[in-house]
Design a binder for these strands. Structure first.
Lengths: 122, 122
DNA sequence: TCTACATTTCGCCACTTAACGAATTATACT
DNA sequence: AGTATAATTCGTTAAGTGGCGAAATGTAGA
């Protein structure tokens, strides 16, 4: 029960649903997710940790960057039901659609260039 | 998005998951749900209203009793995924199993007798 | 080694949630 | 009409959540 409630709590937030939808296409660097959401890094990091604790996303560290992707557990038959439902329910959502557009622009420039630009702004 | 978050928030609580599991077999009177959960009637009523607002349960008034059941929306293909996942994930949960046992005893005596006994305790 | 920087952790604040009892509403029965 | 009672709404309180900036952590490159 505790495990299931951890998962449903993780899903009970619009920012975290946006993150999960962004990860539909594949893995993303934390900095890319931060850029799309336009929230404080610490806030996004907390959301990612909640998703990770619920075993909905996996983290992979590469150099100073951390990449996230939907977990293998999340793609298993049992949890696959949730994702199918979320994808189906949110595929026409405006926020999700604009996120996808923003994401496409960002993935084009690549992680290194994205962070370089980000550093210049400070 | 708002609608989906309303649903996931409704699912993000153990008491409400217990209620949904209790309603797997069919409709129940509010007083039966209150009896199984052993919480204040006002608390349970609030939970039921949250489930109702999320369109996960329907309410039917009969005399002074109110009967709840899983909503038809909830049984549609789209939301059916969630229920299937919940049922599958929780079928071996201890709390859910003891709830089922308690419920069986309570449904045997019937709603009128249950409320009569309840009144005598005061 | 020292610096830069991506990410996380921590501390704080505003807001929400879940619990209860008291008061209210609505229905059945006398 | 008046009473009893199932259920809900309201007000209050304690605990949890989501946001931020500051500080800490860890890694790449000078």
């Amino acid at each position: 029960m505790r495990e299931i409630v951890t998962i449903t709590k993780a899903l009970a937030n619009d920012v975290r649903l946006r993150i999960l939808m962004m990860l539909s296409e594949g893995e993303l660097c934390a900095c890319q997710i931060i850029e799309v959401l336009d929230l404080a890094p610490s806030t996004v990091s907390k959301h990612l940790s909640i998703l990770h604790q619920a075993r909905l996303v996996d983290a992979r560290k590469n150099g100073r960057w951390v990449y996230y992707q939907r977990s293998r557990i999340g793609t298993s038959p049992i949890n696959g039901d949730i994702f199918r439902w979320l994808r189906e329910s949110l595929k026409n959502d405006d926020q999700i659609k604009t996120d996808a557009v923003t994401l496409k622009k960002i993935t084009k420039i690549g992680v290194e260039e994205l962070c370089k630009r980000r550093a210049q702004k400070d």
